[in-house]
Design a protein around this nucleic acid. Sequence first.
DNA 1: CACGACTCCTGCTGGC
DNA 2: TGCCAGCAGGAGTCGT
Length: 274
Amino acid sequence: MPELPEVEVTRLGLVPGIVGRRVTGVAVRNGSLRQPVPIHLADVLLGRELLAIGRRGKYLLLDFGQGWLLVHLGMSGSLRLLATDVPVAKHDHVDLEFGQAVLRYRDPRRFGLVLWHDRAAGPVEDHPLLAPLGLEPLTDGLTGAWLYGATRGRSAPIKQVLMDAHTLVGVGNIYASESLFRAGIAPHIPARQLTLAQCQRLAAAIKETLAAALAAGGSTLRDFIQSDGSSGYFQMQHYVYGRAGEACRLCGSTILSDRLGNRSTFFCPRCQGA
DNA sequence: CACGACTCCTGCTGGC
DNA sequence: TGCCAGCAGGAGTCGT
């Protein structure tokens, strides 16, 4: 599942290959994603130079000067840079050609997005999907004090607050469980009950977890440049996620699972005091 | 306002 | 072996 580290690794992998190049072709094979892919995409993109690739939360922002292409990978999406003769596969929904290379969007479950935001509509940060997004976790803004403030008055379980993109972006189901484990905090306790000391541990744990995943992804960067079509995603070794019934890597207790907000949740009852 | 349930979609897994 | 139910999950929407 692409979470923030995977999205950032995708961004880093694409920048050297296509920034500064012009769009020479556009193909939309299946435009029914979470929202329809704009039908005028070719009109607006053909001949335009890609100036930069930014990121906000899990959204990639391809800056074409005239506007931005917003890409969200959803649950099963991927963006790869391939040679133009690589055959199209079943769920390859959108192609952007840059001369000899093609940027190919694949998304079997079609939870993702490919949208256009024209410069005339204002800065991309004002896009209705981006404007309400919360804090970027890999910035200096994420501190124990910030997290303490952000959780006051929140009665929902801390794990759900961590996954709320309007509070904090980029922490999905996997890294929420992993970060809470690292911080030694039970996932189901009401967010407002966290002490400042716990918030400080948790803020540090979120950064560590994401940074470790980003580092793991760095070694897969080649996959984006090669045209072999390999997925480009990477599997970090998890402490708790997906390990129900197995032994905790730190204390040996049996990892438990639970459902929180309709999502599977994993934790160590001993390390996380639950 | 905050919370929780529901929804979109397809591939994989497990039970029979 | 085949069929089908259930699960996975980001994030928007809606009802309370």
